[in-house]
Nucleic acid binder design. Structure first.
Lengths: 223, 223
DNA sequence: GATCGTTTCATACAAACGTTTGAATTGCAA
DNA sequence: TTGCAATTCAAACGTTTGTATGAAACGATC
């Protein structure tokens, strides 16, 4: 059995297991059982459990960023170098939503792994997570070009809150389904994406939303 | 040393430790060291580690729900039994935001524990989490009274997405601060609350937002 | 002050974890 | 075929974990 086969089997099994369970709950023995390899193979090929998870995280992160940036670039190219705000937001949030919720894509393990990695924190991940900020900065710059008049804080808030809605929708699928008794269709990725995008765009294009929020904040300082 | 003192010391220490670290990373030995009690005291007073965490979770959950419902009731009483949409949303999201972000409240351990419990899942917690759905239902009903014309799905989505923005803002404080280089003030609880509430209200009061999202969803079915 | 239930304590236990070891096996080059 | 490096394997190691035990200390009641 070739070495590459073992490496790949471990990566695939670990990604799938970690997509559904907490990192701490997934043991090396679970992984090697699912991959049909020997226990020592993980430390032989990857050095440690954390290093294995880090490798999966990096690979998934690169794949996700590539998909996002391709969508952003497509929108910019179609608009003579300038993408609309809704296009920037869609490029940011749609890939993960589709990877995690779309039944046609059989719920990609890579996407679900990313969602879990965004919650759990292994010390080794901190360096990688800093790169995520750099990645977001490119979307912030695209958004600033789309809305030159907006305050920087409003731009950052819109990107953050759109991501927040997308991530938590993925995390809270069960609760939302139960709460709405099925009225909210969690498989309708297009509908969910447009709901989040339109909310963010409305907030960004509303008149002086930042100043109004600040004023309201001051007036309701009590309670 | 009285028994109640030991119980209270354990509860306090465990809550504080679990507010800052993952449940799995907080060991019984960490807790007893912080509480200055014997190792066996935890199993003697609470039965098991999970039971201890469950007791903290229930207590924190009750406290949070009480605070939310008090705010909702105050708004309903002030409006002859009918609260405005923004008041319903504020009652839902402000307590946790304030407990976790407000520096004046010295970042309540109870609130941060709740945020962590919403992410981590101990088997014992599942029953308690079902109660959270019942709790949310009361806000859904209040919202339906405020907006009789809205589709149920829109109501549920608005509550879910408002909660999503609040929770992830708390979780991503570090990333948003770094991304915005301080331009986003994470200590301005009033400003953050109003930003989230106004976005949700706009989505709820926009004309036929549900149908428009569905239409847009169909038109962008590609990509 | 003796008694008895309650609480504390030091200590031990069994299980599970990630990791290591050294021998066995494989696959390829000479 | 021989030789050698790469890989696989069963087994064990040392920690750490939550939990259990039994004796000691405590505190109220009579």
């Amino acid at each position: 059995m070739s070495s590459d086969h073992t490496r790949h089997a471990i990566l695939t099994a670990a990604e799938r297991l970690c997509a559904d369970n907490s990192f701490g709950d997934v043991t090396l023995r679970d992984i090697v059982a699912a991959a049909n390899v020997n226990l020592a193979a993980i430390n032989y090929h990857f050095g440690s459990k954390d290093a294995l998870l880090a490798e999966i995280y990096i690979a998934s992160s690169i794949a996700l960023n590539r998909e996002r940036l391709a969508a952003l670039k497509a929108a910019e190219d179609a608009g003579q170098g300038r993408a609309r705000p809704d296009e920037v937001l869609r490029a940011l949030i749609e890939p993960l939503l589709r990877g995690c919720l779309d039944p046609d894509r059989q719920r990609s393990a890579s996407s679900r792994f990313m969602i879990r990695a965004s919650t759990e924190s292994i010390p080794t991940f901190r360096r990688i997570k800093n790169k995520e900020v750099d990645h977001l900065r490119r979307f912030a710059e695209a958004m600033k070009r789309a809305l030159p008049g907006r305050a920087d804080a409003d731009i950052y808030w819109s990107l953050h809150l759109a991501l927040a809605m997308a991530h938590q929708t993925i995390n809270d699928v069960e609760r939302l389904t139960k709460l709405s008794d099925g009225a909210c269709d969690l498989a309708d990725v297009d509908g969910i994406t447009e709901r989040i995008v339109s909310m963010s765009v409305m907030a960004l294009t509303a008149n002086a939303s930042s100043e109004r929020a600040a004023a309201k904040s001051a007036s309701t300082r009590r309670k």
